[in-house]
């Protein structure tokens, strides 16, 4: 039975929903608009129509050495996620298809590591990084971000793998596939959608991580989150340029995020809400 909705009610709901949506989106929208203004325009008061100049983008890229943190962000987020997948795919395979009595406990325990507040281990991690020379290096931060997101990666993969019938893997085993063949030719291709959404969500989480990246980098390995945080006082970077830098920092991940809406729910609730 289709719900009979009057046209007027529908128009009313639509207007209300759009109003709320635009209000929520407004800070982002206004930042985008400001980034397209000149500095004088930017502080000249409220105005939704910019002069569409790309001057701020050019300045940010040339003066503030924008590409280095950008590349760091890409390397850290993609690198840590791929690393996590390499460790997590076999683990999730084992837990989904060869469960033992303790599998559930192990999963819960993994989840619990995610609950440890970062600040609780700030002191030792900071000291370890200082003493081992990992401070402000991409490799150190990549490993750290991998560890932080590993539980989510294992969990997401586990929930996806569990939807694959075990008989298909057994069929592969009967067909003469080794474990490597089984994971490479059968499990992974079948789980591609799940792996892709895991990848996507974790790139987003790693990209936006802003505690460890700020604590453990200064310049060389600083990704965008740490780079942007250093503009906490607007001296040296005025409104339009700050907006341009912000837009460049969030644009790639915003687009990725739009594609991963569905997986977001599943990933962040550890499968508790689908």
């Amino acid at each position: 039975m289709a719900r009979a909705v009057t046209r007027n009610a529908r128009i009313g709901w639509t207007i209300a929903a759009w109003a709320v949506a635009l209000l929520i989106f407004f800070p982002i929208l206004y930042t985008i608009i400001t980034s397209l203004k000149s500095e004088q325009e930017a502080i000249a008061g409220f105005d939704l129509i910019p002069s569409f100049t790309l001057e701020s983008y050019q300045t940010v890229q040339s003066q503030n050495n924008y590409w280095r943190p950008f590349m760091n962000s890409v390397i850290l987020s993609v690198g840590s996620t791929l690393l996590a997948l390499v460790v997590a795919i076999p683990a999730a395979w084992a837990m989904a298809f060869s469960p033992t009595k303790r599998t559930k406990d192990i999963l819960m325990w993994m989840l619990s590591t995610k609950m440890m507040p970062a600040v609780a281990v700030l002191v030792p991690i900071y000291l370890i990084f200082l003493r081992t020379g990992l401070m402000d290096t991409r490799i150190g931060l990549t490993i750290l971000l991998m560890l932080i997101n590993l539980p989510i990666v294992v969990w997401m993969l586990y929930t996806y793998f569990r939807e694959i019938p075990g008989e298909i893997l057994e069929a592969a085993r009967m067909d003469g596939a080794s474990l490597r063949d089984e994971i490479l030719y059968v499990l992974t291709p079948m789980a591609i959608p799940g792996i892709a959404s895991t990848l996507l969500l974790n790139i987003i989480l790693a990209w936006n991580e802003a505690f460890w990246t700020i604590q453990l980098t200064t310049t060389k390995a600083a990704p965008l989150s740490a780079f942007i945080a250093s503009f906490s006082s607007p001296q040296g970077l005025f409104w339009a340029k700050l907006s341009a830098a912000s837009v460049m920092a969030i644009a790639p991940i915003l687009v990725l995020g739009w594609f991963s809406q569905k997986q977001l729910v599943r990933g962040l609730t550890f499968g508790a809400v689908k």
Binding site: F25, N208, L242, S246, G257
Partner: peptide, 22 residues
């Protein structure tokens, strides 16, 4: 899409946008 967008804004950027723009 409009409603979920703020979630993808990294915390320092979100804070700076609010601090300076709003």
């Amino acid at each position: 899409i409009l409603v979920i967008s703020p979630f993808f804004v990294m915390p320092p950027v979100a804070a700076l946008i609010w601090k300076n723009m709003i």
